[in-house]
Computed example of a mutant assay.
Amino acid sequence: MASCSRFEDYQVGQVLALTVLPGQSETGLASTIHARIRELLMPRTLSCCTVVDLASETWPGTIDKPDEPIFLKLYDRRFSEQLRYQFGIDPWTKDFESAYIQAVRTGKARQFLHDLKTISNFQEDTEELWDDGQNETFLAEQADKLYNNETNAYDALGDIQGELVPRLVARVSLALSAPDVNNNGANVTNNEDLLPVKGVLLQFIPGFSLGEVQDLAPKSAWQTIVDQAVAAVQAAGDRGILNRDVRPDSFLVQRTGDSTNSENYKVVMIDFGLSRLRGADESDRNWAKAKLRKDEKGAVGLVMKKRLSSQGFELRYENSDRYMEYAGGDDEDE
Rank of each mutant, 00 (worst) to 15 (best):
I33G: 01
F7Q: 04
L129K: 13
F79D: 06
A221W: 01
D249T: 14
A140H: 09
E136Y: 03
H114N: 11
A103Q: 02
A153T: 14
L252R: 13
D76C: 04
D238V: 04
F204P: 00
S5I: 07
A235T: 06
G312N: 01
K117W: 10
A229K: 04
L164N: 12
T224I: 01
N182M: 06
Y85A: 10
K145P: 02
S209I: 05
L174V: 08
H34P: 04
S209H: 07
D258S: 13
T260K: 14
L174I: 05
I205W: 02
E97A: 02
L176E: 15
G28L: 10
K117M: 13
L72M: 09
D245F: 08
D245K: 10
V200W: 01
V267I: 07
E334D: 15
P166S: 10
L202D: 00
G23Y: 03
A109K: 03
A299F: 05
Y75H: 09
N184Q: 12
N184A: 07
D90E: 06
H34F: 13
A153Q: 04
L277K: 12
N135V: 05
V104A: 03
V104K: 02
A229W: 06
E141D: 14
D95V: 10
D295I: 03
S250N: 14
F7S: 07
W222S: 02
P60F: 13
A103W: 04
